[in-house]
């Protein structure tokens, strides 16, 4: 149920963030304030060709942050502890190199088996900014990107109970062992500078598993950084708070008074 509430809130949040912000200029004007011909002006009059805006000089730098959604994981699921830190740096004018490191621990004993898993994960990838706005000091980004993820975890079960009402329950265990998993992610999200050099961002992640080894005996209940181990595709959400150390901004145009 919490998942559906969360998804509903996400819908609303996306809705407000999308429609609540007006990136357009008053009717009849383009972003530069020039008069723009409207389609219904005069029949037969050819439309003016849309002016393609150049990508603005946004502030560059390297940012360090954390995914704050992971702090709330124990609220929804008290079997799990997750932490994730990330880094992002400008690679080209509108491209970013990103990376993250994280840790996930899961432990439960309320099913027909006990389960323990400890693991670390890493993601590397690139983001591309598709947000072009001619507004001084607007350093916001709408990002689409690709990630490669990898996790190494130790997992096992110290008690497996198979219920049998006739011959009697059977108990066994599986010693902890290591396995690793690989996946790719398509990401899309928004990043905004809320205070000077302080950025908030959120991302939706579509994750596709490439491979997990050693899953014959015990499939991982969750793969750190990926999600449910049994799913070929998982979806994720992250909300990052990051501080950016600016660099390479000498040629940026000073804001007009």
């Amino acid at each position: 149920m919490l998942k559906y509430i969360f998804t509903s809130i996400l819908f609303l949040a996306i809705g407000f963030s999308s429609f609540g912000q007006d990136y357009t200029q008053p009717s009849g004007q383009n972003r530069n304030g020039n008069n723009q011909q409207r389609p219904e002006d005069e029949e037969g009059t050819p439309r003016q060709k849309k002016e393609k805006l150049p990508y603005p000089n946004k502030k560059r730098g390297t940012s360090f942050g954390v995914d704050i959604t992971q702090f709330f994981v124990p609220v929804f699921d008290d079997d799990r502890i997750v932490a994730e830190a990330n880094i992002r740096t400008n690679f080209k004018k509108r491209m970013f190199l990103t990376g993250s490191l994280g840790y996930e621990k899961i432990s439960f004993d309320d099913k027909s088996y006990h389960y323990d898993s400890d693991g670390v994960f890493a993601r590397v990838g690139i983001d591309y900014d598709i947000f072009i706005v001619d507004e001084p000091d607007n350093n916001d980004n709408i990002l689409i990107g690709l990630r490669y993820g990898m996790a190494i975890q130790d997992h096992g079960s110290d008690l497996i109970t198979i219920e049998d009402g006739y011959w009697g329950n059977y108990e066994t265990s599986i010693d902890n062992y290591s396995l690793n998993s690989h996946w790719v992610e398509l990401v899309a999200g928004l990043r905004s500078e809320v205070l000077k050099n302080l950025y908030f961002s959120w991302f939706i992640r579509v994750k596709g598993k490439i491979h997990s080894n050693n899953t014959e005996v015990l499939e991982p209940y969750r793969i750190p950084g990926y999600g449910k181990g049994a799913n070929a595709i998982n979806l994720g959400f992250s909300y990052n708070v990051a501080y950016q150390i600016p660099w390479g901004n000498k040629n940026r145009k000073a804001p007009t008074p």
Binding site: Y4, T7, L10, N231, I233, L235
Partner: peptide
């Protein structure tokens, strides 16, 4: 669309 798929797959 992604969120709906998420609700279905997870």
């Amino acid at each position: 669309f992604i969120a709906v798929v998420y609700a279905c797959t997870s």
